[in-house]
Write a protein that binds this DNA or RNA. Structure first.
Length: 854
DNA sequence: GTTGCCAAGTTTTTT
DNA sequence: ACTTGGCAAC
């Protein structure tokens, strides 16, 4: 049966629908293919859209939402969940444009909820804080905060942080949370010494989070899922409000996200004691159901017209790359089982890439065994084959890529249409240096970088205790930054006090005057600190003559009155180091970011984005509400959010961040065993090579981002953590047939000598002297197709021999200096006397020294 | 109480 | 290499 709107009940009444059908709607589907059109028009009941890479997925989603609105569905009845904020923003924008073009009036976007799972959950948890066991002013802890708290908890439990490193304990806890396992059920499962203790930490860590009125990333999902599950009223309100649910990148949802979506979607009728869908994949264990997780909605089948809730999920199992984060690919593979009456539409036609690129992607992904095959096809003809280049080392690789990009640019491609992908962030560094040397404008997709800086983190810590005084981790970070006479000893006393009376650290600070263990000076220092914070918050009211009501003003005031700014100004004056001057700038930049947020917030953001604005948070002072929203927006930024295609620069990013994007020309660097596939995925043999297959999908994602040109590079030697290592080209290159790839071995080209062009950067110390032969044989026997002239500037130069005593050198950071002495051994060191900063000992191999003539 | 030096861990991917 | 945290000296 065709589940078109014609034969399904239209809850909004047919009048507006008919009107829309006649006019605007035609424009929405006119230029779509059959399956695309179907995905847009099939609005009622569960729908699974298997959208291959480049199949026009975003277009379909936006049209679908516009179509829903055109048929009379109210914007606030629609909930669209995306993977990143950026994707959400773009989608909202595109829908707005569509509506202006077709329906006339972009105002309809207002009230539409397009957001990420994490943002939605943060909002829901604030609104339903009480039901979730939280207070609405909770702080969202990032991984750094988590580590600090976890470490503290481990110490309190008298466990050694050597046996229980906070980070690995946290990853176990995270895994548990992703499977909706709370501390109790985790403990129930723990059998051995180690996991029993991890269970103890989990429990204490959760308690500590609650005491700090904080949640971590996983809690956002876990607590929301649990609240929806256990609280019929909350669930009912959400179901009543959102009648049309759309989930993008469904292949990367985890168990908690699956449940959240399923519970919000509801089904009109709830089954009790329902079971989660079991995996149909071989090799995947059925998850044992935890206690008390009954009530999962089970859509009913075939009764009446309605076959289930209006939930549309869009995704591509071949692009599932977040398994390590708890994403469960069976969510999408088993969607048909979860929603028996659902409709499945496959979008297989690729509109993005040329045939040779698509073919490379297709042959690669066919190597995955646990896979539902989907035919990828394009009607486009022609196009260049992807290239694979083997270089001598990572510097030569970076140079080759820069050359390639320049050539593309000269051929007419804009910088912004090019991108460089890599498996690990550490690979960006060498690439950056090369791009700088070649004057190629670039930007790195690292949304969190700014907020990760020490000075910014400190400023934010101040803001966080203003918003949430119980936030102990933030308080500890700044209580004595800048130094204000509250020593570690004093802090320990206060900490112990807080612990004993089970109150937040800030409360203990308030009572410091009566603590006998503290001397008068310490008491006074603490009292002064408390008074300072109180002045900022207006004693918690966020009102009064002293409070301007402006967020930017508050941020500015805090970085000044706390002494933070002055501290960095002083540091910048004494050290003259460039990074210290930057720190002051960064603090000022933070004020600007607050100002910008404030303006956008004032404009419309809250009304448009807050899913529950209508009956929102009453009695919250406006400044506090704004501060919360600001901190939340910062906590939930993703790397991919900072990708700005309007910038005229090449974008560098990880393969993970590249998901969902497209570029005319793409270079994938580090195509080596151990990097892609990553060693962690190879070394641990997992049933069915699950991790290896995920790496292959990651490679597939990278390839399918390219529209017209693709370059994949591999370096014969790569310096990893300071040690040059021989590499093996990625097996994935070998999996793409030779005829589909232009392979060239340029590993001899710059093997002996690598020099950046004039004004250039580091020199190669000659530590790479690759063995002759070897070639690119893992990929292709056709080696030696080197281009360019390998300008071997002579003899082999040992690192030590290059810098004789007395020679002048330049260090990128310390400037000019003279080599005073050299020590031999396996890692020769030199004492360099610098003009500006005095003598330093450095390992020649690592110090980026350049010999200077004269 | 504060500052500076040394040791250790670090590098997979991220909301 | 690079940052972070712990400890010892001022």
């Amino acid at each position: 049966m065709e589940a078109t709107p014609e034969n399904l009940e239209n809850p909004q009444g047919s009048r507006s629908w008919i009107a829309a059908r006649a006019g605007a709607d035609d424009a929405l589907v006119r230029d779509l293919t059959g399956p695309q059109r179907e995905a847009v028009l099939c609005t009622q009941g569960p729908l699974l859209v298997l959208a291959a890479a480049g199949s026009g997925k975003t277009r379909v989603i936006t049209r679908r939402i516009a179509h829903l609105l055109a048929t009379g569905v109210k914007p606030w009845q629609i909930l669209a969940l995306t993977f990143t904020n950026k994707a959400a923003g773009e989608m909202r924008e595109r829908i707005g444009k569509l509506l202006e073009e077709t329906a006339g009036g972009g105002g309809a976007v207002r009230g539409l909820t397009v957001t990420t799972f994490h943002s939605l959950c943060a909002r829901l948890l604030r609104k339903y804080a009480e039901a979730a066991g939280l207070k609405p002013d909770f702080t969202i802890y990032d991984s750094d905060d988590q580590s600090k708290l976890c470490k503290k908890v481990i110490e309190q439990l008298q466990l050694s942080t050597a046996n229980f490193p906070p980070r690995s304990v946290l990853s176990a806890v995270s895994r548990a949370k992703n499977e909706l396992m709370d501390a109790e059920s985790f403990a129930a499962r723990a059998t051995d010494f180690s996991s029993k203790n991890i269970a103890r930490v989990y429990k204490a860590y959760s308690a500590a989070l609650r005491a700090a009125n904080a949640v971590d990333f996983d809690d956002l999902l876990l607590l929301t899922a649990r609240t929806l599950e256990r609280n019929a009223q909350v669930r009912g309100e959400c179901q009543a409000r959102w009648r049309y649910l759309l989930v993008d990148e469904y292949q990367d949802t985890n168990r908690a996200q699956f449940l959240i979506a399923a519970m919000i979607a509801g089904d009109g009728e709830r089954a009790s004691g329902g079971e989660l869908p079991a995996s149909s994949l071989p090799g995947v264990e059925d998850e044992e159901e935890g206690e008390g997780t009954g009530g999962t909605p089970v859509p009913r089948d075939g009764i009446g017209k309605k076959v289930g809730p209006n939930i549309c999920v869009v995704g591509d199992p071949d692009q599932a790359i977040y398994g390590w984060r708890g994403a469960d690919i069976s969510n999408i593979l088993d969607f048909e089982r979860s929603y028996p009456g659902c409709r499945v539409i496959t979008l297989g036609e690729n509109f993005r890439s040329t045939a040779p690129i698509l073919e490379a992607a297709d042959t690669l992904i066919r190597h995955n065994k646990r896979r539902k095959h989907k035919d990828l096809f394009t009607s486009r003809k022609g196009g260049e084959k992807p290239e694979a280049i083997l270089t001598s080392n990572e510097k030569a690789e970076a140079r080759v890529v820069a050359d390639w990009l320049k050539a593309r640019h000269e051929a007419g491609a804009a910088w912004r249409d090019m991108a460089i992908f890599y498996r690990t962030n550490s690979l960006s560094r060498v690439m950056e240096e090369s791009l700088r040397a070649f004057n190629v404008p670039y930007s790195i997709a690292r949304g969190t970088a700014f907020y990760d800086r020490e000075e910014v983190r400190s400023a934010l810590a101040y803001l966080r205790i203003v918003a949430n005084p119980a936030d102990g981790v933030s308080l500890s970070r700044i209580i004595n930054v800048p130094a204000r006479g509250i020593s570690k000893a004093t802090q320990d006393v206060l900490e112990a006090f807080a612990e004993r009376d089970e109150m937040p650290l800030m409360e203990a600070c308030r009572g410091a005057g009566g603590v006998a263990e503290l001397n008068a000076r310490a008491q006074a220092a603490v009292a002064k600190f408390v008074a300072m914070v109180d002045a900022w918050t207006g004693g918690g009211t966020f009102m009064g003559s002293d409070i301007s009501g402006s967020l930017a003003d508050l941020v500015d005031r805090i970085i000044r009155e706390s002494g933070l700014r002055a501290m960095y100004v002083a540091q910048a004056n004494t050290s003259k180091s460039e990074t210290d001057a930057e720190r002051v700038d960064n603090l000022d930049e933070l004020v600007s970011s607050a100002r910008q947020f404030e303006q956008e917030y004032d404009a419309a953001a809250d009304a448009a984005n807050d899913p529950l604005a209508a009956d929102g948070l009453v009695e919250t002072p406006p400044l506090l509400a704004m501060l919360r929203a600001y901190l939340e927006s910062i906590a939930l930024v993703a790397d991919a959010d900072s990708v700005d295609p309007t910038q005229g620069s090449v974008t560098l990013m990880t393969l993970h961040a590249a998901k969902g994007l497209e570029f005319d020309s793409v270079a994938m660097i580090g195509m080596e065993e151990g990097l892609l596939p990553h060693s962690r995925a190879i070394s641990m043999p997992v049933a069915g090579d699950a991790e290896l297959e995920e790496e292959r999908r990651l490679c597939f994602v990278g390839i399918t981002r390219a529209m017209r040109r693709l370059l994949m590079t591999s370096a014969k030697y790569r310096t990893i953590r300071g040690v040059p290592e021989r590499t093996i080209p990625s097996r994935f290159l070998g999996e793409i047939p030779e005829r589909g790839l232009i392979v060239s071995d340029q590993s001899e080209t710059f093997a002996e000598d690598y020099d950046a062009p004039a004004g250039g950067w580091g020199v190669d110390t000659g530590r790479y002297s690759p063995p002759r032969g070897g070639g690119f044989s893992a990929v292709s026997p056709s080696s030696g197709a080197s281009s360019g002239s390998g300008s071997s500037s002579g003899a082999s130069r040992g690192p030590a021999g290059e810098f004789p005593v007395g020679s002048k050198v330049r260090h990128p950071q310390f400037g000019l200096g003279i080599v005073e002495s050299i020590s031999g051994g396996p890692s020769p060191r030199a004492v360099i006397k610098f003009k500006d900063v005095g003598s330093k000992t450095m390992v020649l191999e690592y110090a980026r020294l350049v010999r200077v003539q004269g």
